[in-house]
Simulated scan of single mutants.
Amino acid sequence: MTDSTAPMIGILGGYGRVGAAAARTLAAEGGHRLRIGGRDATAAWALARRLGGDTEAAVADAANSQSVTHFSRGCAAVLDCTGTAFALRGRVRREVLAAGGHYVAMADDGGPRTPSGPFVAVLFTGLSATFAGWLPRRLATGLAAAQRFTGWYGGPGTAPLHAAVTCLLGLRRAGHGPRAVDCPPLPAPWGPSWPLPARPGTVRRGLPEELREQSCLLRLDAGAWYEVFHGTAVPAVLDAFAARSEGDDEESLTATARQLVRAGRGTPRGSRGLTVCGTLDGLTPEGSAVRRGMLLGCSEPTALLGTLAAVAVREVTAGRVPPGVHSLAATLPTEGTDWISRHLPRATVRMTEVLTGAPEMMPSAPTAAPQPG
């Protein structure tokens, strides 16, 4: 049985694909009570019964302020997996914070980025942008100085509509559209492991807001981020959107997001997994120049999203995130990667470190995640 004094985490949209994955992760970790919410009471209670313990369910409609307030009462934090955050323009966040809980959203809610009293708000800014901000933080852990970071993202071709909207908002925040380039060769030993075509359709280089922030905080000399796509359909939609100077209203963003989802459906079979790779040059506390690398491969991006959501809300309720509005990239822990391998089926994480100029890499043993219980 879960301790009745353990913090309550409410999950709006808790029986959807991302919400259910987050709920399963939190239930497996323990230390929390869970409240599954959504408009479908039957689905909410069905998941609550499967999770067991002190998990409860409640009817909640994200579009109804009174319903959100009622659902949020007693929650240390509310995880919003409904996908309606942007359309509601920060309203769910305001209701959750007013009810006395922290707020974590798996979308950009379009609300202000200014602090709201003693509470925490965490916004998801897309998988690519999240890893662009988290990878340099992870690789710089324990170094005396970080100098240069380069990252590659090969993502799934399709995405839920709300994730596509979040991607477009992130592109707008970046201030300029990523440009198509030739893909630089991946450093050993990643090259043979990179599960993408020998000639990917499009490679785009950009500088997401999350990487710009970390470049400043880590005082990097240089940072680069490459997105690798199968084919040209998805990049064509992104480039057309970046070239527009207007059209960020809800209707226009939703229409473009639908185009993005349709374009992604043309992704070749077998290429729907996600692969992220990053390298960081820096100095150890002893003054040695090193290059660190990390490779993450995941065949189930939805499970990855759920794990990221669960870890973020766990960090928030544990008091490890200061008050204010943060991106998910700045919230994820940097110590270790076991939180990935414990919950992601068939995920692979590999870390390397080499003295600069040394003849060979010294990879750690790759870790393949067990099937979740």
Rank of each mutant, 00 (worst) to 15 (best):
P118D: 15
L211R: 06
P192W: 03
L34T: 00
D338W: 09
S341I: 01
T141E: 14
L135N: 06
A140R: 04
R314T: 15
M1C: 06
A44E: 01
A233I: 05
V228N: 03
Q371I: 08
E213M: 10
V276M: 03
S271V: 06
G100W: 10
T232H: 11
L135R: 01
R199V: 14
E209W: 08
S67D: 12
P345W: 00
V120Y: 04
V203F: 04
T232M: 07
M351T: 14
A312Q: 05
G151C: 02
S116W: 13
P136W: 03
R17L: 11
V68Y: 03
L344Y: 01
P192D: 12
E246I: 14
M361R: 14
P184N: 02
I340E: 04
S128K: 06
S4F: 05
L332M: 06
L308G: 02
V165C: 11
G270D: 12
T348D: 01
F71W: 10
L355Q: 13
T150D: 14
T114N: 10
R244T: 08
H230E: 11
P195A: 01
T284Q: 03
G154N: 12
G126F: 02
S72G: 10
G319E: 11
T141C: 12
A318N: 13
P160H: 06
E29I: 07
A310R: 01
E29H: 08
A369L: 09
A63Y: 08
G151I: 03
H230W: 06
T130K: 04
F119L: 15
I340F: 15
L143P: 07
S72C: 14
A28N: 05
P195L: 00
D338S: 15
L12M: 09
G13F: 02
Q259T: 11
M1T: 09
R137A: 03
A99V: 11
R269L: 15
R258Q: 12
L123H: 09
A330I: 01
G282H: 00
